Simulated assay, not measured.
Amino acid sequence: MKRFTCDELVELITAYLDGALDRPERAGFEAHAATCADCARQLDQFRETVRALRELPPERKLSDGTRDRLMSAFRARRHRG
């Protein structure tokens, strides 16, 4: 099982939620999140954000372009620290 740092876990949250991690990666991700309160909180916040966005009426959902710009900004901010 791979052991993850907090930074690695943050990088993989979307892949984890999309079910895109292989079994060893998923196990390592879950083990880290189970023992790191900060990462568990980030995972919960990300899940809540996804849930909230899914509950918006169709006319209120983000356009693909807006979603892409937000995700790019999120990734850039994460890399800056």
Score class of each variant (00 low, 15 high):
29 F>C: 01
11 E>M: 08
61 K>D: 01
53 L>T: 03
43 L>D: 01
72 S>R: 14
32 H>R: 12
64 D>M: 14
54 R>K: 10
80 R>L: 15
7 D>H: 06
54 R>V: 02
15 A>T: 12
76 A>L: 13
40 A>R: 02
8 E>M: 06
14 T>C: 08
24 P>W: 06
10 V>S: 08
45 Q>M: 06
13 I>K: 02
38 D>Q: 14
58 P>Y: 07
39 C>N: 01
3 R>M: 14
38 D>M: 13
34 A>V: 02
41 R>L: 08
11 E>Y: 07
53 L>G: 05
4 F>G: 00
19 G>D: 12
35 T>K: 15
80 R>I: 15
2 K>E: 12
6 C>G: 14
55 E>Q: 11
67 R>T: 06
72 S>T: 10
29 F>W: 00
51 R>N: 00
50 V>C: 05
52 A>E: 02
23 R>S: 07
54 R>Y: 02
51 R>M: 01
75 R>W: 04
67 R>C: 08
50 V>Q: 04
5 T>P: 02
55 E>S: 10
4 F>M: 04
4 F>K: 01
42 Q>W: 08
70 L>I: 06
81 G>A: 11
59 E>S: 10
79 H>V: 10
45 Q>L: 12
19 G>P: 07
58 P>N: 09
6 C>D: 15
8 E>H: 09
40 A>S: 08
54 R>M: 07
37 A>C: 09
5 T>S: 13
41 R>Y: 03
37 A>Y: 01
27 A>Q: 13
18 D>E: 15
19 G>S: 11
28 G>E: 01
57 P>G: 14
22 D>Y: 04
73 A>Q: 14
52 A>I: 00
1 M>F: 08
23 R>Y: 03
32 H>M: 09
4 F>T: 00
75 R>E: 10
69 R>T: 12
70 L>V: 03
63 S>R: 03
7 D>V: 09
26 R>L: 06
64 D>E: 15
40 A>Y: 00
78 R>W: 03
29 F>N: 00
61 K>E: 03
27 A>T: 13
57 P>Q: 15
75 R>Q: 08
